[in-house]
Simulated assay, not measured.
Amino acid sequence: MTILYTTKVTATGGRKGTIRSEDGILDLKLALPKELGGMGGATNPEQLFAGGYAACFENALLRVARESGHRFADGDVEVVAEIGLSRNEADAFVLHAALAITLAGLDQAMAEQLVHGADAICPYSNAIRGNVDVTKTVRVR
């Protein structure tokens, strides 16, 4: 397998620390969310995962659409990722995800077909498949 891209991010201080990419472009403070007993006021791993998943899934969707002859304007596609944190039966922390996908200019069947195709090639979807419960809602406008 040929590696197409690699990056490194260093975390220090856990959920109350910082993260910094090797090139310095990503350099953020982290905070435990208020909902988990923290102070809030900074990003957290779940927000970062949600942002990455939404962006990656949208890009996969645009590729699948383009390959099937559909072109979208910037405002025609929206992917909202919601990442939740809970505990399983063994009291271990687990993630769950929900994707809300909105597409303009298609019928429902075609939109769902494109979303299915995007799910098949999105690296985030492939990484968590079988490990994280993911629900997808597809809406057309």
Score class of each variant (00 low, 15 high):
A90S: 09
G52T: 11
G41P: 01
G17V: 07
I83L: 09
E112V: 05
G24R: 00
N88G: 02
D23L: 04
P33K: 15
I25D: 15
D107V: 10
R15V: 04
E89K: 07
K8V: 15
N126E: 14
A118Q: 02
M110N: 10
M39H: 15
V9M: 08
V9P: 03
T7D: 12
M1V: 06
H70M: 05
Y53D: 00
L26T: 08
T12D: 12
P33V: 13
A100Q: 12
A97L: 14
Y124C: 00
L114H: 05
G24N: 04
C56Q: 04
G69M: 13
A111R: 06
K136W: 11
V9Q: 06
Q47Y: 10
A42I: 05
E112D: 05
V9F: 08
M1H: 05
N59Y: 04
A100Y: 10
G51Q: 11
H116A: 07
G17D: 05
N126H: 12
G24S: 07
A97P: 09
G69N: 09
L106M: 05
A98Y: 13
N44P: 00
L32G: 03
T2F: 09
T7C: 12
I101G: 00
E112I: 06
K29N: 14
V138E: 02
D91Y: 13
E78W: 01
I83Q: 03
N126V: 09
D74A: 06
F57A: 00
R87C: 02
T102E: 04
G37Y: 13
Q113H: 15
A11M: 12
G105V: 05
N88V: 03
M110H: 13
P123S: 14
D107N: 15
S125W: 13
K8M: 10
A98V: 14
Q108G: 01
E35I: 14
V132Y: 10
G117E: 11
E82N: 08
L26G: 12
T18P: 00
F57K: 01
G130P: 03
A92H: 14
G105L: 05
F93L: 09
Q108H: 11
G14S: 08
C56R: 03
Q108F: 10
L62P: 00
V138M: 05
G41R: 09
A104I: 02
G13I: 09
V134L: 08
V134K: 03
A97G: 11
T2S: 13
G37K: 14
I3C: 05
T137N: 06
T10S: 10
A120L: 14
R87A: 04
G13R: 11
S21H: 08
I3Q: 11
A81L: 07
T43I: 07
R87G: 01
A98E: 14
A111Y: 05
G75I: 01
G84Q: 12
T2D: 12
E22V: 12
V138A: 01
K29Q: 15
E112R: 15
V132I: 15
T18W: 04
A120F: 14
D76W: 03
